[in-house]
């Protein structure tokens, strides 16, 4: 029994951590809802024909004057809030996950190589990381966005918004991966199994990816979770600032920006319901990240 529990310690901790379970359920629900949005959403917010202005500004189902068809109410265009949120979460997650993948591949690759080769290569990568640190995430993202506005002709700018946004977020996150991967690789380089592999004459790529990488996955997984949360926040922030996605393909951040117009009027749900969803999603991911950190770093428990 004890041996069994030790082997699946992560699982054991998970089953005994109500916060982690709730977070996983919330994250999974939003994730599934986002993936299957086209099939389960009442209306398609991109399709003008699927909603009607006559349904505009309806409150959630439990308030007076609601239409029970729209459980969380509608916005001024008559779009069902649930549908907008599901499509918005879909877009937020697509951008967040793609940015995360790019940042992870770039950052882990550079970090591993910097830690493995050390010396001049390491110094160069770390100086680039220093410069990147002096220009924090939001700044980098804004900057890339600005550059894209300057370079790209207006006609294709709209089409490339998602790509530009993804790239901007990815570039602002890679440093985290690179620094973590490098620090962990340095620790592993002193371990004797790595020295044994190098002594044998194995190729550097094999030593890095077959020997070292599996041993540094733990901290990287933690970074990945935390950075997914950051990526979603960053996307929302950029869209809120009005330089992310345009209003006709709303992400969660854009929905909140639109909702801001109703801050002073009575239609509270247009602002606060998307906000609640965004916060719930990010809190869940962060709780899972915290949980993973505890699993991989038992000393802090």
């Amino acid at each position: 029994m004890i041996a069994f529990v030790k082997k699946y310690e992560g699982l054991w901790l998970f089953v005994h951590s109500p916060a982690a379970i709730i977070a996983a359920i919330v994250a999974a629900l939003i994730f599934v809802g986002a993936v299957f949005a086209p099939w389960i959403a009442l209306v398609n917010p991109y399709d003008l024909a699927s909603f009607s202005l006559f349904d505009g500004l309806l409150p959630p189902a439990w308030e007076d004057g609601a239409n029970p068809k729209f459980i969380l109410g509608t916005d001024d265009q008559g779009r069902d809030m649930i549908s907008s949120i599901l499509y918005g979460a879909r877009l937020s997650l697509v951008i967040g996950l793609s940015a995360l993948s790019i940042a992870a591949v770039l950052g882990v690759g550079l970090g591993l190589a910097a830690g493995y080769y050390g010396g001049r290569f390491d110094a160069i990568v770390m100086r680039i990381a220093d410069v990147q640190l002096a220009l924090p995430a939001i700044l980098t993202a804004l900057l890339i966005d600005g550059i894209a506005r300057g370079i790209l002709p207006a006609s294709i700018q709209q089409d490339l918004r998602v790509a530009v946004l993804t790239l901007a977020i990815a570039l602002s996150l890679w440093v985290n991966f690179a620094r973590t991967a490098r620090a962990s690789t340095f620790l592993q380089m002193n371990k004797e199994y790595v020295q044994a592999a190098i002594m044998m004459g194995q190729r550097p790529t094999r030593v890095m990816f077959v020997h070292i990488l599996p041993n540094i996955l733990g901290p990287l997984l933690v970074i990945m979770t935390v950075d997914l949360a950051s990526a979603i926040l960053l996307e929302a922030t950029l869209s809120f600032l009005g330089i992310g996605l345009p209003a006709d393909s709303p992400s969660l951040g854009t929905l909140i920006r639109i909702g801001m117009q109703f801050l002073l009027s009575g239609e509270w749900w247009i602002l606060w319901i998307p906000t609640l969803f965004l916060v719930a999603l990010v809190v869940s991911i962060n709780i899972l990240g915290d949980f993973l950190r505890d699993v991989f770093n038992p000393r802090l428990r």
Binding site: K191, M199, M200, G201, H211, N215
Partner: peptide, 26 residues
């Protein structure tokens, strides 16, 4: 010393720390 040098096979080592000399993920 090239990666293919014969001494890489002829010379082997037993390390001090058995907890770090075997790759724990393999």
């Amino acid at each position: 010393r090239s990666r293919q040098h014969p001494s890489r096979q002829l010379t082997q080592m037993v390390f001090q720390d058995p907890y770090s000399s075997l790759n724990s993920r393999h």
